[in-house]
Amino acid sequence: MLQGLDDYFATRMAALGLRAQRSETLASNIANADTPNYKARDFDFASRLTQAVEQGRQSQSFALATTSSRHLAGEAKSMPDQDLLYRVPSQSSIDGNTVEMDAERINFADNALRYESNLTVINAKIKSLLSAVQQ
């Protein structure tokens, strides 16, 4: 049952984690808008989510080494690797900085909204579980 619960939330949890990670990346871009030679970074959310969910399914990537048959089998999900991409600026700047404030802020707001919608869905899932329990 607990495994089922885990699966029930797995995709949403992975999406939430990735959204948080992306908001950090975008915050770094906004923070470094005036830093010479800073290159704006981002990642492809869709492919990273697929990767994270796939890795969650086949979670034999990290198994705890055991020396006795009575040891518990510890399993850890591996983190998706940090493959940050570079943003291609539509206008270049003289100091080598590729942050475009408007694009970054739009991306950040969009990301925040999607994070929030994820939260809403998780809340709704919990509510439906609870109502099933209370029947």
């Binding site: 992975a14 984690g17 908001s23 915050a27 906004i30 994270a52 983190m79």
Partner: peptide
């Protein structure tokens, strides 16, 4: 699950 790394906290980034 990618956890936000402690070193790159969004509050630290914006605060700095």
């Amino acid at each position: 699950m990618p956890l936000p790394s402690a070193s790159m906290n969004i509050f630290n980034v914006a605060g700095s």
